[in-house]
């Protein structure tokens, strides 16, 4: 692997030069708040080796966990890694600060499809990190009938053979897709229509697991499920019998982004880190550790044919849609799912 020396844009170079006598090493710190293990250690080490900037990597395992610590604990972070619909709410609440796009030389590496998305139409606040979908994974040694959509998964024949992510909004959105209802405008009427269908589905599920849904599939405790595409990609990598299918009725696509919280202290370092991530050779390392969909086209060119062939990482076709922030409706959704699980 070749490493090019970074070409700093004029403004950044000037700024760095101006800061140099003030704080030669003291400026070199970055408080990164990201998903557990989502930024591979070699990437962090490489960044520090090259820039001398020390990275304090603190982790969380859900968007709400991050929000709780960021908002209640006062912002001491320089860079966060929310999912798109959480970033949308954070922008509205003025929790993020605009990026200086001139400092991000690698923006051109991104696939056009990842620019100007609904959560941040002008790309002023966020830069895509990785992307993925929520779809169906099937153990083709056990399931011999074709499975194309949610209704094919949730049928009586598969009772107690199904794993799904333990996420109320996902569950409800599958029922909404199956009914042909919108997933981003949720009200009492649409929840009432989803309820009977979801009640049937929840009875069939053996395991609800958001953290590692692949485990139950690998262990042979279940035969199919609806899971994060990254989990399905790891399963496919392990054994080709695990096939990934984007549900015909429609599926959720998420983009995890990098963004700088309002009040961050090390803004320069944060920009440098984002730009470092945008480099194809770096982004490629992330793909290797996390086989999600890489939004960085230049990095995709560096992937092996095997990585590119992974149907969960780079699915063909399918109707993909972003989640929008639904604000207070999140509580109604959770209540519905708690209710239905209790009724089992």
């Amino acid at each position: 692997m070749k490493f090019k020396t970074p070409i700093l844009p004029g403004r950044l170079a000037a700024l760095l030069l101006a800061l140099l006598p003030l704080a030669a090493r003291a400026a070199g710190e970055l408080n990164l708040f990201g998903w557990s293990e989502y930024v591979p250690q070699p990437v962090l080490d490489g960044f520090t080796r090259e820039t001398g900037i020390k990275v304090n990597f603190e982790t969380y395992s859900s968007n709400e966990e991050m929000l709780a610590k960021l908002v209640a604990g006062g912002g001491r972070y320089d860079l966060v890694q929310p999912s798109d619909y959480t970033a949308e709410a954070m922008i509205r609440r003025k929790l993020l600060q605009p990026l200086d796009r001139a400092r991000l030389t690698g923006l051109g590496n991104l696939a056009p499809a990842f620019n100007g998305r609904a959560h941040d139409p002008e790309g002023r606040y966020t830069v895509p990190y990785m992307s993925g979908s929520v779809g169906i994974v099937v153990n083709t040694e056990k399931v011999k009938v074709p499975v194309r959509g949610y209704r094919d998964v949730f049928q009586a024949a598969f009772r107690d053979r199904i794993v799904v992510v333990n996420d109320s909004r996902e569950l409800v959105s599958w029922a909404l897709y199956a009914l042909g209802l919108p997933v981003n405008t949720i009200d009492a009427a649409s929840l009432a229509r989803a309820r009977p269908l979801l009640a049937e589905w929840i009875k069939l599920v053996k395991v609800f697991d958001s953290d590692s849904p692949k485990t139950a599939l690998l262990n042979g405790d279940v035969d199919l499920g609806v899971v994060w595409s990254g989990e399905a990609a790891i399963l496919w990598r392990e054994n080709r019998k695990f096939q990934y299918v984007l549900p015909a009725e429609g599926a959720h696509q998420f983009v995890d982004v990098l963004a700088i919280p309002a009040g961050a202290r090390n803004v320069t370092e944060a920009h440098r880190f984002i730009d470092y991530i945008l480099r194809p050779e770096v982004s490629r390392q992330i793909s290797a550790a996390f086989p999600y969909t890489n939004p960085n086209l230049a990095a995709r060119r560096l992937l092996t044919p095997d990585e590119l062939a992974n149907p969960a990482s780079y699915p063909k076709g399918g109707k993909l849609e972003s989640f929008r922030d639904i604000g207070r409706a999140a509580a109604d959704i959770d209540r519905l799912v708690t209710d239905l699980k209790s009724a089992k």
Partner: peptide
């Protein structure tokens, strides 16, 4: 309860946790 029970039956600990980490309903 989540890991060994497959999170199929809600128990108090999970429900409280959910209000903060999924349902966005701290007051409840």
């Amino acid at each position: 309860t989540d890991l060994l029970g497959g999170a199929r039956v809600p128990l108090l600990g999970n429900v409280i946790q959910n209000q903060f980490l999924q349902a966005r309903d701290w007051p409840f």
